[in-house]
């Protein structure tokens, strides 16, 4: 009888999903009565939707070596504009506005990056500050022009569109976006070039790739996904409020961690699945900390440690494998010497 084995792709996916499952089981051991219900699991999945789509938008730049810290403020502007558009033009208007605004803003950020040729960190933090103030002004102006929709501090999403932020529609959106992401990430020349630039820019240059053009393109393509993330986020929380004092900077951390986890899981699963797993892990930790009644400052500590562990895992495994190989080689050498 032939020994039937699971396809490697399923086995690998199983290995990757072991991380969130293990995290969930740890929480189950600690607080079974609070976490061990279907509602908790759905909540964890819901909490990972927006960060996953945001991480998709962030990932193109990230793999090519760009750190975009402006995405939070950009999403606020896109969210504010799309929420307003949603009231007058329905779902199509909301979607188109979100994408157009996000792509336009990324065009500015990417354009500045390409023109000025200064580090992305500087450009994106600078534009973040400008975008935050634009967000404030937009909220205030909308508050004066459309008092029924905006309070001056935040813009409300049309009630008939908030369904997009709740299950099952948010999962439908996530799946569609993940498919689109997979196609762009694995089937386009630009994404391949972006990955190549990220791994070695010099070699990429030598084979004729123009890094600056590709990096500029990562902003634009990322803008498309960020626009969708802004729209889903506005539908999810039913409002978009402005942020000041670099507060929108915090919006980048969770997606960035999800991208890092996704990259480290790429040997097991495709990037879009890896990113989702990363977001899911973060939302499990977040929900767990709330359920444990721990102060939220611990969330940052635990998330930080978790990220270090995930990133260090391949290195630790490689070190163990290297040590084992050296030990075997030494044993072999000693054995040969004894025989001689």
């Amino acid at each position: 009888m032939k020994n039937k084995q699971l396809p490697p792709s399923i086995l690998n996916a199983g290995k990757a999903f072991l991380i969130p499952i293990a995290l969930y089981f740890v929480l189950l051991l600690l607080i079974r009565e609070r976490i061990g219900n279907w509602n908790s699991i759905v909540t964890m999945l819901v909490l990972s939707v927006v960060p996953t789509i945001t991480a998709y938008g962030l990932s193109f730049g990230f793999v090519s070596g760009i750190m975009d810290f402006s995405i939070g403020s950009l999403m606020i502007i896109a969210g504010v504009c799309s929420s307003l558009a949603g009231h007058y033009f329905g779902l199509p208007g909301m979607l188109i506005t979100a994408i157009v605004v996000a792509v336009f803003l990324e065009l500015i950020v990417g354009g500045l990056f390409a023109l000025l040729k200064i580090p992305s960190l500087v450009i994106t933090v600078g534009t973040l500050m400008v975008f935050e103030i634009i967000g404030v002004r937009l909220c205030v102006i909308f508050g004066e022009l459309f008092p029924q929709i905006s309070t001056g501090q935040y813009v409300k999403t049309a009630e008939n569109l908030t369904f997009l932020g709740a299950p099952p529609w948010n999962f439908v959106v996530l799946i569609l976006v993940a498919i689109a992401y997979r196609i762009v990430y694995y089937r386009t020349k630009f994404a391949t070039q972006a990955r190549m630039i990220g791994s070695d820019e010099l070699i990429a240059k030598n084979i004729g790739i123009k890094p600056l053009n590709v990096k500029f393109a990562t902003f634009l393509v990322g803008g498309f996904f960020l626009g969708i993330a802004a729209m889903v986020s506005a539908c999810y929380s039913s409002a978009v409020g402005y942020k000041r004092e670099l507060a929108s900077l915090t919006m980048v951390f969770k997606p960035m961690m999800a991208v890092i986890i996704g990259m480290s899981l790429e040997r097991f699963v495709k990037m879009h699945v890896g990113i989702f797993i990363g977001s899911l892990c973060i939302s499990i930790i977040f929900t767990g900390i709330i359920a444990l009644g721990w102060p939220d400052s611990l969330q940052d500590i635990i998330l930080g440690i978790f990220m270090i562990v995930v990133l260090a895992f391949p290195t630790i495994r490689k070190s163990i494998a290297d040590a084992s190989r050296r030990r075997n080689a030494r044993h072999l050498f000693e054995h040969q010497q004894e025989n001689a």
Partner: peptide, 26 residues
């Protein structure tokens, strides 16, 4: 006092927190 969440920055975070609280504390 079931739980407390501090220093929330965005509307999204508020929704996330309340969702998490509802899931953990019916």
């Amino acid at each position: 006092l079931l739980t407390e969440t501090r220093g929330i920055k965005t509307v999204d975070d508020v929704t996330n927190s309340v969702e998490g609280i509802i899931a953990s504390y019916p």
